Amino acid sequence: MANDRLTDVLDATYTCLSRYGVRRTTMDDIAGEMGVSRSAVYQYVRGKDDAVRQLARRLHDRALERAAAAAACDAPPAERIHGIMAAKLDLVLDIAGGSSHAAELLDAKARLSGDICDAFTERIRGLLAEQFAGTGVAAVTAGPTEATGLARPAEPVPPTDPTRPTAPTGSSPTTPATTPIPTPDGTPLTPARAADICLALVIGLESLPDAAHLLRPATYALLTGLLPAPESHS
Rank of each mutant, 00 (worst) to 15 (best):
G149I: 05
P191R: 04
L106P: 00
E33D: 12
R53G: 06
L17M: 07
R193A: 07
A139M: 13
M27I: 10
R23D: 14
D185F: 07
D4F: 05
T25N: 03
A2G: 07
S37E: 06
L150G: 02
H82D: 04
A129L: 13
C16Q: 02
R62D: 12
T148A: 14
A194Q: 01
P168E: 08
T7N: 10
T160A: 12
P176T: 05
V22F: 04
S18G: 13
L6H: 04
A151R: 01
S232A: 15
S234R: 14
H233T: 15
T7G: 11
T174K: 05
T148E: 05
M34I: 11
L150A: 02
G170F: 06
S171G: 07
K88W: 04
A154M: 10
P153W: 09
G225C: 14
G170M: 06
S172F: 13
G134H: 11
I95F: 03
I116S: 00
R58S: 15
R19W: 02
T187I: 00
K48W: 03
G32L: 05
G35K: 07
G35L: 11
A78C: 09
E130M: 12
E104A: 13
R111Y: 13
A56K: 01
I181P: 02
D185C: 12
A139D: 15
A142S: 14
T13G: 00
L128G: 02
L226A: 05
P76V: 05
D94E: 15
V45E: 00
D90M: 07
E65D: 14
G186H: 08
G149V: 06
L214D: 05
K88L: 10
V45A: 03
G204R: 14
A154E: 12
G83S: 04
T190Q: 06
P144I: 13
P153H: 08
R123G: 03
L199C: 11
G136E: 15
Y20L: 08
G170C: 04
S99C: 15
R58L: 11
E155S: 12
T121M: 06
A200Y: 09
A108W: 06
A87V: 03
P76M: 09
R5E: 10
S172P: 01
L223R: 00
R66I: 02
E155K: 09
K48F: 04
T166E: 14
P162R: 10
A110M: 06
R111W: 11
A72W: 03
A195V: 01
Y20V: 03
V92K: 05
D107Q: 08
I30A: 01
M1C: 06
S172K: 12
L205E: 00
T190H: 04
R53C: 06
H101Y: 13
A96F: 03
A218Y: 08
P144T: 15
T13A: 07
H213G: 12
A108M: 08
V22A: 03
P144S: 14
I95L: 14
G35D: 08
S18C: 15
P77V: 02
G35R: 09
G143F: 11
L106M: 13
D185N: 15
D11G: 08
P180S: 08
P188D: 11
S100Y: 09
L64Q: 04
K48H: 05
D28H: 11
A102F: 04
D61R: 09
A108H: 12
S100H: 11
A212V: 10
T166H: 07
